[in-house]
């Protein structure tokens, strides 16, 4: 799994695929205040990205991947 779900923190690593979207949605529904750590994430499939955009959870660590970081900033700002 490219997402490791902790109590109130989801840690995204490397390539988050389409399979993860549903789990992410369920986790965010269960933990509305759940935070996201994206430090080691390189790409998020559009499906998971949409979930993040809908929930706008707190991002505790921005991705180190500069391009992804800019994209997420734009996506979560709107």
């Amino acid at each position: 799994m490219a997402i490791e779900f902790k109590k109130s923190l989801a840690v995204f690593t490397e390539f988050v695929s389409v399979e993860e979207a549903e789990t992410l949605l369920e986790w965010l529904l269960k933990n509305p205040k759940g935070k996201i750590n994206l430090a080691d994430c390189t790409h998020i499939h559009a499906s998971s990205l949409q979930v993040l955009m809908a929930f706008k959870p707190t991002i505790v660590h921005e991705p180190q991947d500069a391009d992804l970081a800019i994209w997420l900033k734009a996506a979560l700002a709107s």
Partner: peptide, 11 residues
Amino acid sequence: LAEMDVFNSVA
């Protein structure tokens, strides 16, 4: 949010 369909592209 609970009824969100993650497999539908809406962006």
